[in-house]
Amino acid sequence: MSERVYQLEVLRYHPETDSEPHFQRYSVSCEEEWVVLDALNRIKETIDPTLSYRWSCHMAVCGSCGMMINGEPMLACKSFLRDYQGVIRVEPLAHFPIERDLVTVIDDFMDKFKRVKPYLIPKHEKPVSEGEYLQSPAQLKKFKQYTMCINCMLCYAACPEYGLIPKFLGPAAISMAHRYNQDSRDGGRDERQEEIATTEGVWECSFVGACSEVCPEHVDPASALQQVKIKSTVDWYKEHLMPWVKK
């Protein structure tokens, strides 16, 4: 295994001593097959124990280590040092307030996520003793990709709409609502529409598509939002032009 020295420029911010963030340069020896997270861990272990960031699984499922790496929202555990040249610039996720160093405040996302009712509201209640709901592989596939969201919030950091208009519900929350709306077992779409088919919901989205480009799990939130728009439009026409047709 071969090590070499990498240069990382990390955004530091400490609320107790700093009035604003500043970059700090680290030279750190790393294995060439390592990821940016490994480099941060080595910095913390051997150079600067005060550097703060979140991480856990190191396999791109826990969603903790979202950061801006050379300006792009990335999971630090899936960003390979070999893919970068020169100084690697590491910043906290864009569009979220910085708590400290690379740690952001994500309360806004957590609140919005809850607002869209991201849980199954059964179409037909049935007791557990009667066994599972039947769901064909095709019905499962219809929504499966949207279940893969790890709540890493890279899509929020990529979305310029969210950056400019913070009240926008945002890609991950709306995608999760769409996931349940598409589930053959669910009957809660009307309740969720009240949250997502609004100006703060899908209609704030102008289809930049950045959310899908940065999603580490290939969830494609942009597709979910466009589908919600189309379905909401159909709802509107049914309601206003064909009031006799039941939704």
Binding site: P160, V208, E213
Partner: peptide, 25 residues
């Protein structure tokens, strides 16, 4: 209370120069 979260403002009229994908948009 020692917290003082720092908010980085998004530049209103120049944000789209930041990434090629925003320029394409």
């Amino acid at each position: 209370m020692s917290r003082k979260p720092y908010v980085r403002e998004v530049p209103k009229y120049s944000w789209f120069f930041r990434r090629p994908r925003y320029m394409r948009y």
